[in-house]
Design a protein around this nucleic acid. Structure first.
Lengths: 283, 283
DNA sequence: GGGCGTCGATACCGTCCGGGTATCGGTCCG
DNA sequence: CGGACCGATACCCGGACGGTATCGACGCCC
């Protein structure tokens, strides 16, 4: 199977429309029809059920859509990492680390310091991204290593090492009655009138239905809390970054948050291995 | 990047010889040279350092070798799983589970029984393979789900759920003095004269240097133990499969062995999800 | 219900690219 | 120094890929 065929199929399977898919691919519709037919013939499988009015995925088709996307991502990642490896001979960027913008600054600073002073270390570029994007960036080969936070971020498909765990706190406007408590439980904060928990986008970028405002990043969330429109339950390390008009109270029975360092399972380069080792040996 | 280019490059990078690589690929040498040049031009990177007598990988080249192998494996897996999905509409094989031939029979039997009686379950084919091969089979799309044993098997690149942990025992010929003990420590069994620990092949199929016989599977190992030529340290569940002329003694400080169920991180089909859920809810 | 618009399939054609053979240029070896 | 080996180059051919034109089927709407 050639990547061209895969790209074509994924486009059609996503659009469920040959014309739009062809437009997206920058080719005419007839060659696209032919390519899909040929792919089906070679696989010996019907991938799409088509009438002259509608296109639908078969079982085999949805398998190929999921697997094909992953395979294409792997090919693109290979290309991107090769390009980066070639550039790094001359230009600097040796290693790219990606983490959430809202993650603990201390851990990251400690890690970068410790690694920079290690023998044989290379330059590290840091990418800060929105929650849930690290996995994608790592999979696409735009980054070599990521700091993730379980259970929020999926570690599926990566090698990981745990770096530490921490409890969670509820973030409230400074004047809120609950700020007088020295700890709370989940039951104390779910269903507070007018203070719902926010909704985060899923891996596909859409929001689950239900009450609560939609948020995309931590700054938005804190803004909403300050406005008295939502609650936030966050890892306790976020206290260091909390503005004065917000207060945090530990939530005893909230799930522990584990910070992990993750990297793609292949091509464990010397630099990545060193960085991971440095991370696991951090105090 | 097309998979054809990747296949060509991987062949050359593995053979480090254009002629042999071309032969392996079933094409002539000149088109291969051209294809690699074109790939290098498109990537803007030198992948191979070639003189008229020798071919060597550059840094970027070894990155592309590792990443390219993984990407090709993903493409092949996509193709294989699609073919299987298409067949399974008519023919039976619904789900393929792979595990070591030497793994605990009870767990597997319990799992298959429990899943078979679950609503909506599909037929499960079981593949038994040699140690260390499960990951490959899963990655190549020949299987949908695997039972692995940490720390022996790498779970890199898969989603996993832990199913249980067990201690290890040392397996000895029935008459050996140590069989009188009700437990031992690692120190008691390393360096026993004439009874070395065996060597297992690495992921690349080669054996690490050192003393001890080379073994490929559990049956070979037990044979060597029975012959008094080696020691075996195995998960305690192997006791159920031990012939009468062998005895097992717990090793208190041997690493715990964790049985995990693993599946590829994409395309979490209904059937795989059901099987995993069944596995985690096993008594 | 007939005309029209939409959409995928088919027919046909040109071009470019991938693959083949022949050969060259450089390097190591006897 | 001649020959063997190896990758690169030159040149040619066929097929595959992409484009345009058109068909056939199906909904829709007046």
């Amino acid at each position: 199977m050639e990547t061209r065929e895969l790209r074509y199929f994924v486009a059609v399977a996503e659009e469920l429309h040959f014309g739009r898919a062809a437009q997206r691919l920058g080719i005419a519709q007839p060659p696209l029809s032919r390519a899909i037919q040929q792919l089906e013939r070679r696989l010996g499988a019907t991938l799409l059920e088509r009438t002259s009015r509608t296109v639908a995925l078969t079982g085999a088709g949805s398998v190929l859509l999921a697997e094909g996307r992953a395979a294409l991502a792997a090919v693109d990642a290979a290309e991107r990492r090769t390009r980066r490896a070639a550039r790094s001979v001359t230009g600097r960027p040796g290693l790219v680390l990606v983490t959430k913008a809202s993650a603990s600054r201390e851990l990251l600073a400690d890690l970068l310091d410790a690694y920079a002073s290690a023998p044989g270390s290379v330059a590290v570029d840091v990418i800060l991204c929105g929650p849930g994007e690290q996995g994608r960036l790592l999979r696409e080969g735009r980054a070599d290593v990521a700091l993730l936070h379980r259970p929020f971020d999926s570690t599926a498909g990566f090698d990981t090492e745990e770096l530490g765990a921490e409890g969670q706190v509820v973030v409230l406007p400074a004047g809120h009655p609950l700020t007088a408590r020295d700890h709370v439980h989940m039951a104390d904060i779910t269903g507070l009138p007018g203070l719902p928990l926010p909704r985060w986008p899923g891996p596909d970028g859409t929001y689950p239905p239900g009450p609560g405002p939609e948020v995309r990043d931590h700054a938005q969330l804190l803004q909403l809390v300050a406005l008295g429109r939502a609650l936030a339950v966050s890892p306790e390390s976020c206290r260091a970054q909390l503005p004065g008009d917000l207060a945090a109270v530990p939530v005893l029975d909230a799930p522990k948050v584990t910070t992990v360092i993750a990297w793609p399972p292949h091509s464990r380069s010397r630099a990545v291995a060193d960085l991971v080792r440095t991370a696991t040996r951090l105090p």
